[in-house]
Amino acid sequence: MSVKAVLHSEWMKIRTLRSLLIALLGGPVATTAISALVSATEDGKRSDFDPVFSSFFGLAFGQIAAVSFGVLAVGHEYTGGGIRVWLAAVPRRGLYYGCKLTVVGLCALAVGLVTGFASLLVSQALLGDKGVGLNAPGALRAAVGCGIYLALLTVLASGVAAVLRSSVGTLAVVVPIVTFLSPVFGATSATRFLPDQAGQQVLHTAPEGPLGAWTGLGVLALYAAAAVFCGRLAVERRDA
């Protein structure tokens, strides 16, 4: 089968579902708007004030949109026995799954980069004289890292959805991990290795703790790879 044709089909599947487009575009809007709001009211007097990291305050909300997009892109395939139609069209399941996650991941990366730069630049502008430019230490890295972070989180969510084959079930598992565990337990030596805390190291001017900016993203990438691998096994082995 033609990889290009399957990629094209997967892209069309995303384009033609409004809920996926809303989830996809909700990320940059929520992240930038909330970050902007916080930056506009930030006095920058806290001792731990990090002008770079504070421009991603809204990411806590925007990442839920990214997770939703990843979950729904896979979960929608299963509604009403629809997966049978898609797997009958593309019976090589590795190809089907690979193309889907590629398209989902690329969409999330593109939108994630927009999110990163928009959130950073808008926030820095609003921070006024406390703000820094793209050439400040860690700023460019954080904007690009934000895009990669969102793409990895999205793909992780897609992988879990392929295992659970249900949007609701997957959201119930993934959303609490990225919204609940970290805020409740804070940055302890263990929670630093949670997918969201590890991946968000890249957003700091100078990451502290055992993980650096890129190694933190690497840890998130390992989680994502594990989820994608489990999803692949589920898609490959289970009866549709």
Partner: peptide, 18 residues
């Protein structure tokens, strides 16, 4: 099996492209 939120033509188009 066709997703309720897609139009009939889009559903068939997604299949046809693959």
């Amino acid at each position: 099996a066709a997703h309720g939120a897609r139009t009939a033509r889009d559903h068939l188009l997604c299949l046809a492209l693959s």
